[in-house]
Design a protein around this nucleic acid. Sequence first.
DNA 1: TCCTGGCACTCGGGCAGGGTGAGTGCCAAA
DNA 2: TTTGGCACTCACCCTGCCCGAGTGCCAGGA
Lengths: 339, 339
Amino acid sequence: MLSERRLEVLRAIVQDYVGTEEPVGSKALTERHKLGVSPATVRNDMAVLEEEGYIAQPHTSAGRIPTDKGYRLFVDRLAGVKPLSTPERRAIHNFLDGAVDLDDVVGRTVRLLAQLTRQVAVVQYPSLTRSSIRHVELLSLAPARLMLVLITDTGRVEQRVIDCPAPFGETSLADLRARLNSRVGGRRFADVPQLVQDLPESFEEAEERATVSTVLATLLETLVEEHEERLMIGGTANLTRFGHDFPLTIRPVLEALEEQVVLLKLLGEVKESGMTVRIGHENAYEGLNSTSVVSVGYGSGGEAVAKLGVVGPTRMDYPGTMGAVRAVARYVGQILAES
Amino acid sequence: MLSERRLEVLRAIVQDYVGTEEPVGSKALTERHKLGVSPATVRNDMAVLEEEGYIAQPHTSAGRIPTDKGYRLFVDRLAGVKPLSTPERRAIHNFLDGAVDLDDVVGRTVRLLAQLTRQVAVVQYPSLTRSSIRHVELLSLAPARLMLVLITDTGRVEQRVIDCPAPFGETSLADLRARLNSRVGGRRFADVPQLVQDLPESFEEAEERATVSTVLATLLETLVEEHEERLMIGGTANLTRFGHDFPLTIRPVLEALEEQVVLLKLLGEVKESGMTVRIGHENAYEGLNSTSVVSVGYGSGGEAVAKLGVVGPTRMDYPGTMGAVRAVARYVGQILAES
DNA sequence: TCCTGGCACTCGGGCAGGGTGAGTGCCAAA
DNA sequence: TTTGGCACTCACCCTGCCCGAGTGCCAGGA
């Protein structure tokens, strides 16, 4: 167990290192913080902290920098979540209130997060599987060709073209459209499969039944199509603030950011509620081993329909970043609930 | 006027510099190319080329590198468009054929272009203003609240929520929907305003007329909303191949890429038909002064509905890049026409 | 037992100096 | 007009050097 003072030393090291980006030594520490002890004492504490794996020195005769384990302790026990300032809150409201549709909300959120945290922002579109259906629309493109349009309560629109086994009359189409909507309108995606199960049987002609089955199959397929989960990223220019050695650092990060799969998996690991902070090697994906990811779910109601977060260097201002991420997530949730 | 051999020397310089990324000297040139003359002669030619502003030396006693003017001459007179190899063509087909909807087409195109050219790819979504309407759908969300869904022939879907001045019955809604579609279905956006001009008058009740007017206003607004033109970018990780000094180079480029406005303006300057190459300082936007942009329009029919291109260092393989951009644009056009 | 001041040691970073080689410009001869 | 020769110029690299921040250790003091 680390003594109170040693924790205080660790906190001071993290704060200084985040500020200056340079290894911090014992003398500088005692000068900048009122620890009430001499540099020599701090040196001893540092030796212990290093032995325990919380800090390390890049090379002999240099100051110390926190390790991933050190940051972890800092986040878990030494730092709170810094609430945003009033101007910052106001900025969030001003910025998000003007959004006209879902794309716009997500786009603005990304830019806002990137700006507030000065890091790379990632925002997932509200996921289909957790939302409910506002409306299903069927359009006839050609005699045997339909377009299925699915509108969710988060404002997202999905479309699919369906080739039918046989032509489908306008009357039957209107009929199907009406029945579909009365059954699934307002329902959760998860509930849909049972609700439409017996729908084909209620049509008389075999051809119609075949078409209805095709349409339903496409609908269900659209609902479960996890791979279609989209996301938006922004603030990549902030990567250039990473450090001096960054050609090596920035490359894999950019690559990771382009791999939607990686990012989705990354966000997918977020706990349903509450904020998740993944530090350095805690990230499964190798390219992100020198970055930290702060993420949180957001949603229109009480529960999360999607996630958002930021990616930055392990050397980041955790309290501030966490505060910004949480505040933005809350307000985006509100916006979605209103629209 | 430059003699034939001097042009040949310029071409050799450009090719070598693009390949090696290092200033090229007279001796190396004669060794790598069969110019049939001695290094001394090449030196004289180089002196002339430098005087004319086609090449420059980074510092005394270094080799020469092409200037923007040099690249311009190279592109205009010395280089053709290199056709793609058969495997590359096949890759394009394989990669794009699996696309399921418009988002997917654009996404795949971006990744494909980035991969083929090893540079940053930018693809604009088919613009609304140049496409035609496939279908207009009106849904009732609440008694006095409608959702307008607009489907274009390029598969793009736009949605708007409309608050009506008064409740609007289901019958009237079906009526309006039918009339709207019969008038504007299949028509070009540009023609829509006249086609719907007298629509409100054909409704009897004043309240209905008011609502119809509101709906039409929203529809027209959606049609002209240029700022909604979206685009997708990819391959930013390729920026790390830029050069050694690139922290300074990459920053403004990333910033430019995040500014949709800048990019849209960039693509907007592209000539309607034919490929446009903007080299270095020819780009209006300052951050892109050390990059070249190769772009071209693409479309489902004979005419362009949107543009795509790549952004890379001025030191790029112009013939190859132009070939890839052209080939991809053509095939995307085909895909859009089919769907 | 813990803190403190002192001291010798380490090592990265910055600076100066010299050698190397690719590349140039100029000139006289073919 | 082309060519070979020649002197010159720098960027680059390697070396040796000093400096200073920072460390570990130790002995003395609260």
